[in-house]
Amino acid sequence: MFTKLKKRWKITSNIQLLLILTAFSLTGSLSVMIRKPVFEYLSIGPDTNLLIKILMSILIITPTYQILLVLVGSVLGQFRFFWNFEKKMLSRFSSKKKTKSIPKEA
């Protein structure tokens, strides 16, 4: 399993793999931890509609995760990997499917 990840991510070192996996886990935990104070600031509590909570969680956690991933990755010495990872992820969000243009007959 780890050899597949190393090949996919184009890394060779087990230590680098460990640092990358650590960055992913720390970033996930930190981004969820940040949600609580933001919810308190926005006065979102137990009585708030569940749909609003879910929507706000997505809007808060997603960009927070992206930013923290690069920051935590940088602290662990893996900036280049996570910068490329973010660029690839953002390109997936922004890319639109190209349709083939049909040549017009004269």
Score class of each variant (00 low, 15 high):
Lys53Tyr: 08
Val72Asn: 05
Gln66His: 11
Leu18Met: 09
Ile67Asn: 02
Glu40Tyr: 07
Trp83Lys: 03
Lys4Met: 14
Ile11Asn: 01
Leu18Arg: 02
Thr27Ser: 04
Met56Glu: 10
Leu68Ile: 02
Arg8Pro: 02
Phe85Leu: 03
Leu18Trp: 09
Met1Gly: 04
Lys6Pro: 00
Thr27Asn: 05
Ser31Trp: 02
Gln66Trp: 09
Asn49Pro: 04
Ser74Arg: 09
Lys98Thr: 07
Val38Cys: 04
Ile54Val: 09
Asn49Gln: 15
Lys88Asp: 14
Leu71Ala: 15
Leu68Pro: 04
Gly73Thr: 04
Leu59Arg: 00
Arg35Thr: 10
Met56Trp: 15
Ser95Trp: 11
Trp9Gly: 05
Met33Ile: 13
Gln16Ser: 06
Met89Lys: 11
Ile61Asp: 10
Glu105Thr: 13
Phe79Gln: 03
Pro103Lys: 12
Trp83Ala: 15
Lys53Leu: 13
Trp9Asp: 03
Lys7Gln: 11
Thr62Cys: 04
Phe93Arg: 01
Gln78Ala: 10
Glu40Ala: 12
Pro46Asn: 15
Met33His: 14
Arg80Ser: 14
Tyr65Leu: 05
Lys98Met: 13
Ser29Lys: 14
Ser29Tyr: 11
Thr48Ser: 06
Asn84Lys: 08
Gly45Ser: 10
Arg92Trp: 12
Ser94Gln: 09
Pro37Thr: 01
Thr27Lys: 01
Glu105Trp: 12
Ile20His: 03
Phe39Asn: 05
